[in-house]
Nucleic acid binder design. Structure first.
Lengths: 266, 266
DNA sequence: GCGATTTGTCTGATATTTCAGACGATATAT
DNA sequence: ATATATCGTCTGAAATATCAGACAAATCGC
């Protein structure tokens, strides 16, 4: 009945797919957690079994182990489970062990607080763009985004910076063709994309608008790591109609902060 | 050499120890992550193998799987590994799926920002107290604490609230004897501890000083869950010499905020 | 109310994964 | 420079964790 497993590429375990092979517990755990992350809401064991293509009995076994370790926890009274407290602690440890990363986050939060705009820290996860952390603008109607949701790289301003260290051929190999198709159906020409990456590299920033959606203006500035590779970016996500003066002001702030966080020479 | 397996109650696997039995991959993963959390810094594979009592070859296998999934990541160039980005994303998802938890965190941050004091969100993890999140006071010398570090319950103000739903016998069974011994060698009498829990329950807050260390004054207020059980507390950690007027002011704020976050009746 | 689906738990068999140990290469110490 | 310890990778064999399926109880749908 179902044959089109067309795994689009994804990072990490890659393949997944396939039907009834016996799989290792660890791999199932990894798939389970990633599936929950994608789904972004609690799931029942039966659903999880389907999501990761595992036998129900095995899934129960695994889920129970993870529950006991508090890596998952029960949500509600309908047998739903979601990430548990242990995950919070592990994640916190990740975010704090590294003084540089901590400074980056603090800066992002400060920028958000000072300007009242939505500020984000972004990076690559596999061949997708993800928001690693964010500081949403206040107010009843706000532009916000979920941390951890994977988005095709060509849809984003940050993406143009994050690929800056690759050659054109590498980029061509890296980005799946379908990722050039925007949500509204338009398709970005690969050559344009490559040109924009080159331009972002020399300018030291990138701006886009009307790509992933119609109502945002995104600006991103690179935070190169010690080797000079842009592993993270700092961004503002503004309403499209933000006046140009304000935009220039914010861009200047963004670039200055990102530069101060750079680990490469200067 | 080691014979006291006295499972003290703790959560999850607890003891670790034991000799050369064959263990399941999942369990090894859980032990590995908890060991890394306790250690609070990157470790080499060889060290990890020792920490979790696993054969080296197995440990390599597991670590490599987790690295590929970005649940761990390489740190430095000496073969150290620590939590990876995926953990950050999972932890973020944990912290945001639940509107109530999100409100609690926001409140804690606001309290920290408004007062300039160290504010914490605390809870139980197994039979130990842990800081679940915190907002450290600014300034060059600050009182701060690490999220996720487990501390004996009797050393803390929050602990006296978090056990409020238990009977004396349950508490006696729950808290290991050795947890009544403070870092400086003094021992809290069990009867005193029980009395303080009862007192905290009727007063609706708890204060301690000079327990876990000599220089802090801690105050905690309960956040009951829907069943009325105090699953979390909000705390301030102040310098001991904070004047009483200021302390009262902060305590009032703390109690008011905690009450507003309560899920039980009112 | 009754049939259909789903849930959570068990069981036994076997395909797999863990484990011990060996190996050369690399670091650390004397 | 030589000895010692550790690193990272492989291998075969044995122990066992995963799997399919059965089951009763709970839930759903109408």
């Amino acid at each position: 009945m179902d044959n089109n497993k067309m795994e689009t590429g994804g990072h990490g375990n890659g393949g997944a797919s396939s039907g009834g092979e016996r799989k290792r517990g660890i791999d199932r755990v990894i798939m389970l957690l990633e599936a929950l992350l994608k789904r972004r809401e609690p799931a029942r064991v039966g659903d999880i079994a389907k999501m990761i293509n595992a036998p129900r009995s095995t899934t129960y076994e695994i889920v129970n182990s993870l529950l006991e370790a508090e890596m998952l926890e029960n949500v509600g009274s309908e047998g739903h489970v979601y990430f548990g407290r242990a995950m919070h602690l592990f994640g916190w440890a990740y975010g704090h062990h590294n003084a540089h990363y901590r400074r980056v986050i603090e800066n992002m939060e400060a920028m958000g607080a000072e300007t009242g705009e939505t500020a984000q820290l972004c990076g690559l996860r596999g061949n997708k763009y993800v928001v690693l952390d964010c500081r949403d603008s206040p107010g009843p109607f706000r532009i916000s985004s979920d941390v951890g949701v994977e988005v095709p790289v060509p849809w984003t301003a940050s993406g143009r910076l994050l690929l800056g260290h690759m050659t054109d051929d590498e980029i061509r190999a890296f980005i799946p063709r379908e990722d050039y198709r925007l949500p509204d159906g338009r398709v970005i020409a690969e050559s344009d994309f490559l040109a924009e990456i080159a331009e972002a590299r020399v300018r030291g920033y990138s701006e886009t608008s009307g790509l992933a959606d119609r109502f945002t203006w995104c600006m991103a500035a690179p935070i190169p790591d010690a080797r000079g590779i842009v592993s993270h970016t700092l961004c503002f996500v503004l309403p499209v109609d933000t006046p140009i003066g304000r935009r220039e002001e914010l861009l200047a702030l963004l670039r200055e902060r990102a530069r101060s966080l750079s680990l490469s020479g200067n």
